[in-house]
Amino acid sequence: MAAEVTLNKPKRSIWDGGQSPFKASYGKLMMWFFLLSDAFTFSSLLIGYGYVRFSLPAYEGSLDNYAASQEVWPVAEMVFDAVPFLHGVHLPLVFVGIMTFILILSSVTMVLAVEAGHRMDRKAVVKYLLWTIIGGVTFLGCQVWEWSHFIAGTEEGLLLADGTRLFGANLLENEYGPQLFANFFFFITGFHGTHVLSGIILLFIVFYNAAVGTYDRRGHYEMVEKIGLYWHFVDLVWVFVFTFFYLV
């Protein structure tokens, strides 16, 4: 009987151990604190970006006669206006909007996988993890396209003072605006993309383990929850990158 068991046990205070003050497992807690430290890293990148951006003059005037200049911070919607298969059509921010929706959707399938894990529903976990991986790979593919387009440059390029034309951007030259604009684009979206890539690799490992029944044998699907936390964090960072790099 329960009453007998408690009588036989010595009285314990909460300081005697055996209590979990956060009511979360060790693995989940460590994932949270890792993500917190990762948030600091991304914050430092965004602080650097903000500082440089506001140190340089912003573009003033109407967008109708917008022209890129290496002295003036560009307007993002005039730089990122290309969509695959629609060459030469001015579609500002459409492609990056599609990328945002893909990432949000992959976050949704991730929560659905976690929910299925709580119910020990292996088939549903495997299905939703696969959708999440597909979403992640699609996002990464979009980013590859975005980068290659950014690096290759526009049709007209930028007319330089010496009469030559500059096409595209890399870490040494940039047709869209000040050099640091390109550098921050590569570093911030690249650092985020690296997170997406490692997220996909981790998701694939969890997907494989779930499919072969490792978590069924273990008796819980906590690994899906932990990788879910990481994946949502990647989505969260993108929300900030989308606002501060593309919208503002």
Binding site: P21, F22, K23, A24, L29, W32, S107, M110, V111, G228, L229, H232, F233, D235, L236, V239, F240, T243
Partner: peptide
Amino acid sequence: VGLTIIKAFYIVAEFMHLRHESKTL
């Protein structure tokens, strides 16, 4: 910035389930 914080709140609170964790966490 306001809208971004709203989105961040929903991702962290609901998707990452933080809203339903213990107060200390």
